[in-house]
Each structure stands twice: as structure tokens, then as C-alpha cells.
Design a protein around this nucleic acid. Structure first.
Length: 581
RNA sequence: UGAAUUAUAGUUUAAUGGUUAGAGCAUUAGCUUGUCGAGCUAAAAGUAUGAGUUCAAAUCUCAUUUAUUCAGCCA
């Protein structure tokens, strides 16, 4: 070994030991008669000391070591005369007797320090340097701990980790596939899996009744700060279970992770139906760390001269605690926000409940104090509060108020990163109507089972069908989702009909699954967690990129290796491909 | 596909259309024996690319490229 210890583990108990260390030069402090070097590795920083009077030659070598040089040293652990109690190794230093330069380094393009001077773009290009910094390094370690604890937990519960193929078959449903041409089968293509969905169901048919996999999934869609073209799922499936069993098993997983990783004891997760979530938070992924629940004011607000309200399909408000101190300018900003092209609401009505008990509203002209008091009672607001109201078409209005609610909470700093509020959202609709293709789409996926109470009247209006599908939401982030699957081929057939597949299309795309279901498929269901998001939530960050060793940028490019890239004609020929341009 | 923002030294950033484009950090050199965000002195280093407007462009216009965020999209 090139080292006897790491740069993180020596302390005052090791004084007197002769040690060998290896690492990177973090910082070189030349004080003239003395020189100090901070030696860094993954585990920490240890100070090396050189004295002109003791060994001038060695001291001179040390002075010429630049940032990020890789060195190996031999020396004695000594107690410092001036201690630094801010770092774990701060009570000792190494009195170096020998230096071996293992590798020189060019000057790095940004400083490799916890508070780096480098911008995002530059750090991505030199990601291997960024990973040397604590913030990124610690995120990767956090991710490792999460996957490691997940494996332990699921193993203990009897789950078996099984790999499924990456080269599979393209299906037009869902997200766009990444396509891989087959050289051996000219003119044919594989697709990379959007998730191992069908394979895990086949494993259930295969009798592997508790499966999981920490697995890459691929979706060729446009990116966001919380979306990557390749991302990782903790993918799970169980046989002979109902929804209750799945929720309990995986609630246990999440509770265990928070306990082991954060030392936080989460209590039982609340549950909310999709319908309730939409009507009280305007979204299917509510952040429940703070109140500001929607209050329906539609009936209270109608019947005056104010036509905006009279014509509105829905009028809803939220009560902002202590919001009466918002200035005109603050409120104007919120109005501008909800009127922006992205949100596209018509306008914002406010009602301040002043400390003196009176009300001040932007629609004073149309509503008297008594009417405003009715609003206030409905919203349970007290003196000092502020009610914000949006009116208009139903779904757009809910969406606008939902975005506004998050923004106000953000500005009031009540979205606390060290607080975790998980919630199960259950009873999703089975389908949603797609205006573009003029047909139903599965809200979850085509193998999702309707609720057992709905199966009897499955031929009813498809719009009313509720699915045995569930999402886990933490702090407003969708962390996982799953469903009980259909294991009955008759029901599956009806679902395909609702979705507008004819027999032939269904066979063509999912024939292998339908075939498998002819041979005794067990009742089964499962869930998949987005590992990247789970890490970012536990790590308390907005972006998932910092929890991925080598992420891609907004345009799905890797700026470090510069991919994707062109390929040469021979490769294209081999693959039987011809470029359009 | 669309919208917004963005590009100045190695890096982070400043500069009413008008001085020699200014600073912090990093770098280099010198001084410095207890630093750990070391200190002091000095040096080197810059307007993304391509057109255009103007007496004059970092600054205004157009295009390209880059990055970020959002909408569409993501069963």
C-alpha cells in the first residue's frame, strides 16, 4: 500500500507514530521559515509541516508543490502547538521526513474548495475535479448509503434483486424510447427500457414473488432540473398482495431510510385521495409541510356586480398567515407571476384582515365588510392574515393557485429543508382523456388494475374508473409510484379496448405479456422510486444533478465527454443506417 | 417546438453609447518561523462568434453558438 492511513483518521491518539500518507495538495502555505501543506483525500485533510531549520532541502521541495499535485509522504505524527479545532485532524500534524511526488497537476480551472469559485458549466466539464470537493463527494456518498440501506432492508424482507435486459422492444405508449439499431438484424431496432415494468410482471408470473432492482431507466424526453434522460429507479414488485400490503412494505422502507440516514423518526404517512389532493392543493403532489389549503369560495363570491367572479367556474382562495404585512409591491409581483404566460391566470384578488379587525380588499368596490368577513370565516383567517383568491376555469385556476401557494411559502421561508412530510396519494383515476389523440390514456400504465369495487362495472363510463394506483410524495416531490396490476386477461382485454388498441395492436406490442398471463399469473403489484429525486430530497437540494456522478445538461449532453457525437460511415454502414442530412 | 434569462481575465463579477474596461479569488515573483479563508509588496492576464447601426459599441440591432429555468412533453 502507498499509505498506512488516510488523511481523515489521524488524531491526537496517534502522536508519535510514523505514518505514510498519500493524497492531493489542497493548499500550500509558505511562511518563510516554515511551510504548511494541507493534504487531502476522500476522508479528510491532514496538515503537513516543514521547518527550514530542521530540513531546508525538504522544505524547499514542499514549497514548490502546486495545487492538486499527488504526493506521498512519510513522517511522524506530532501534536500541534497551535491547534485548529474546526477540523477532526486539527490537533495533529505530520512532521514530514520524505516526500514522493506521485504525479504533478496542471492548475485546475476552478478552485477545489467547498466554496468553489467555479460556475456550474465549468464544473460539469471538469466533473472529475468537482467530485473532489466535499459538497459533491458527500452527495455521492449519501447516494451510496441510500442504495446500500435499501438493499439491506429489502434483502431482510425477502426481496430478491434480479437484473432485467436493457436491450428490449420499442412500444409507442408512454415516453419516447431511446433506440438502438441492431447490426445482426438489419433494419431492426432495440429500445432501452423506460422502466422494467413488463419484465418485473413476468418475474411475478415466474414465481419470484418479491423482486427488486436498482436500475437505470431511459426516456428520450426534454429535460428539467429534476429530470435526466437516464435515471435510476428502485424498482419493486410483489405477488399475492393488495394495495395495503404494498403501501405498508414500502412505507417501512422509507421510514427505515430516514431513520438510518438522517436519524429522523417518521410517523405513519398520511393518505389522501387524488381527488382531495387536487381540490385542497391543486396538484397530485402536494407539499404538506405548511397549511394554506384551498378554500372553495365559489358560492360566497357570486351575485354582485363583479362579473369576473360571476362568470368564473371556480373561485378558490388560500389564507396566508401574517400576510397582511405584504406591501402593494409584493402583491403586484404575485399578480404578475400568476398572469405570466406559463401560469396564465386572469388575475389575483386579495383581502387583508387588518390588525384592527377591518378588511381591505382589491374588490372593496363590489364587496362590503360583512361579505369580506364571510370570506375570512370560510378561510379561517385571523387579524394579520391575507387571503389570496384566483377565479376562472377549473383546472387552470387550481394549477395557478397551487403554483402561487408554493411561491408564497418559498418567500415566507416555510418550506423547510430539514423537515420531511411524506404523504401517499391514492385512488388515481384509471384514465385521462387525451385531447390531441382523442382517446383515453392510462394515467399510470396500461396494466394498472381498476379498484376491485370498480371491476364489476368496468363497462361503465371509463372516465369514472378509479385505479389501484398510488404515489409517494415528499415535500411536494413525486418520489415513487406504483399500482396493483391486472392479472386477468379478460380485464386486460377490456382495458386495451378502452385505450383504443385493437386486438392486433395489443398482441403486437404486449403479446408476450398476454401470453404469459394465460399460464397462471398471480395477483401482483409494485412500486418504483426515483432514486435521484429521493437522494435530492433527503440531501435537501432542488436539483438531482448533484446526486449523479456524471449527469447530463439541459440539452441531454454530457459536456465532459462531449456526447452525443457523430459516428463514422463504416459504423453507419454496419448498422444499415443512412443519415437524412 | 416555443418563451424568458445568460455570455467581460484561469475564475467570480463591475463598468449612462464616450478616460488606458475596474475589482475579489486563483496564478507567478519577492518578503515572511505557527499558518490553517495566512499576511505584505509587485507582476501577468479580459469584452462568446459573425454581420450591422454609429464620429464612437462590452453597452444598441440581427443571426449563430453556449448555459440555465419554464411551457409543451415526461403511460
Amino acid at each position: 500500500m502507498l499509505r498506512t492511513n488516510t488523511c481523515g483518521d489521524l488524531n491526537v491518539h496517534d502522536v508519535g507514530k510514523i505514518v505514510k500518507l498519500a493524497g492531493w495538495v489542497q493548499k500550500n502555505r509558505n511562511l518563510g521559515g516554515m511551510t504548511f501543506i494541507d493534504l487531502r483525500d476522500r476522508y479528510g485533510v491532514t496538515q503537513l509541516a516543514f521547518d527550514m531549520e530542521i530540513n531546508a532541502e525538504l522544505c524547499d521541495i514542499a514549497r514548490n508543490l502546486g495545487r492538486e499535485f499527488v504526493i506521498q509522504i512519510v513522517g511522524e505524527v506530532i501534536e500541534r502547538s497551535a491547534k485548529n479545532l474546526n477540523i477532526p485532524t486539527g490537533e495533529i500534524e505530520i512532521n514530514v521526513s520524505k516526500i514522493n511526488v506521485l504525479n504533478e497537476s496542471k492548475l485546475p480551472p476552478f478552485t477545489i474548495e467547498n466554496k468553489t469559485d467555479g460556475g456550474e458549466e465549468l464544473r460539469m466539464k471538469y466533473r472529475y475535479l468537482d467530485i473532489r470537493r466535499d459538497p459533491i463527494k458527500n452527495n455521492l456518498i449519501l447516494r451510496h448509503r441510500i442504495t446500500s440501506k435499501t438493499r439491506n432492508y429489502l434483502d431482510l424482507k425477502g426481496f430478491c434483486e434480479i437484473e432485467t435486459p436493457y436491450l428490449i422492444k420499442s412500444t409507442p405508449e408512454g415516453a419516447r424510447d431511446f433506440i438502438v439499431p441492431s447490426r445482426v438484424n438489419p433494419t431492426q431496432f432495440y429500445a432501452l427500457p423506460q422502466s422494467p415494468q413488463t419484465f418485473k410482471q413476468l418475474l411475478m408470473v415466474g414465481g419470484m414473488d418479491k423482486y427488486y432492482q436498482i436500475v437505470k431507466c431511459f426516456r428520450d424526453e426534454d429535460l428539467r432540473s429534476d429530470r435526466q434522460p437516464e435515471f435510476t429507479q428502485i424498482d419493486c414488485e410483489m405477488s399475492f398482495v393488495n394495495q395495503e400490503d404494498v403501501l405498508n412494505t414500502f412505507e417501512g422502507l422509507i421510514i427505515n431510510l430516514f431513520k438510518e440516514i438522517k436519524g429522523i423518526e417518521l410517523s405513519q404517512f398520511p393518505r389522501i385521495t387524488y381527488k382531495e389532493a387536487i381540490s385542497t392543493y391543486g396538484t397530485d403532489k402536494p407539499d404538506i409541510r405548511f397549511g394554506m389549503k384551498f378554500v372553495d369560495l365559489t358560492n360566497l363570491c357570486k351575485g354582485t356586480e363583479f362579473n369576473v367572479f360571476n362568470e368564473a367556474e371556480l373561485i378558490i382562495g388560500i389564507n396566508v398567515k401574517g400576510g397582511s404585512s405584504f406591501s402593494r409591491k409584493d402583491i403586484d409581483k404575485y399578480t404578475e407571476f400568476i398572469r405570466s404566460s406559463q401560469i396564465n391566470a386572469k388575475g389575483l384578488v386579495y383581502c387583508k384582515y387588518n390588525e384592527d379587525g377591518s378588511f381591505k380588499s382589491s374588490v372593496d368596490k363590489f364587496f362590503n365588510q360583512e361579505q369580506l368577513n364571510n370570506w375570512s370565516e370560510a378561510c379561517k383567517s385571523s387579524p394579520g392574515d391575507l387571503i389570496l383568491i384566483i377565479a376562472g376555469e377549473e383546472s387552470n385556476t387550481r394549477n395557478a393557485l397551487s403554483e402561487l401557494r408554493l411561491l408564497v411559502a418559498e418567500n415566507l421561508e416555510i418550506r423547510n429543508n430539514s423537515e420531511f412530510a411524506p404523504i401517499w396519494v391514492v385512488d388515481f383515476p384509471l384514465y385521462e382523456w387525451d385531447k390531441e389523440s382523442n382517446r383515453y390514456h392510462s394515467m399510470h400504465h396500461p396494466f394498472t388494475s381498476p379498484k376491485s369495487s370498480d371491476i364489476d362495472h368496468i363497462k361503465n363510463n371509463p372516465n369514472d374508473l378509479i385505479a389501484d394506483a398510488y404515489d409517494l410524495v415528499i415535500n411536494g416531490n413525486e418520489i415513487g409510484g406504483g399500482s396493483i396490476r391486472i392479472h386477468n386477461k379478460e380485464i386486460q382485454k377490456i382495458i386495451f379496448e378502452h385505450l383504443g388498441f385493437n386486438q392486433e395492436e395489443a398482441r403486437n406490442q404486449f403479446g408476450f405479456l398476454m401470453d404469459a398471463f394465460e399460464y397462471g399469473a398471480p395477483p401482483h403489484g409494485g412500486i418504483a422510486f426515483g432514486l435521484d429525486r429521493l437522494c435530492s430530497v433527503i440531501g435537501g437540494k432542488e436539483s438531482i444533478r448533484d446526486f449523479i456522478a456524471f449527469p447530463k445538461n439541459n440539452s441531454a449532453r454530457d459536456t465532459m465527454i462531449d456526447s452525443p457525437s457523430y459516428i463514422n460511415h463504416e459504423q453507419l454502414d454496419d448498422l444499415n443506417l443512412k443519415l437524412k442530412n
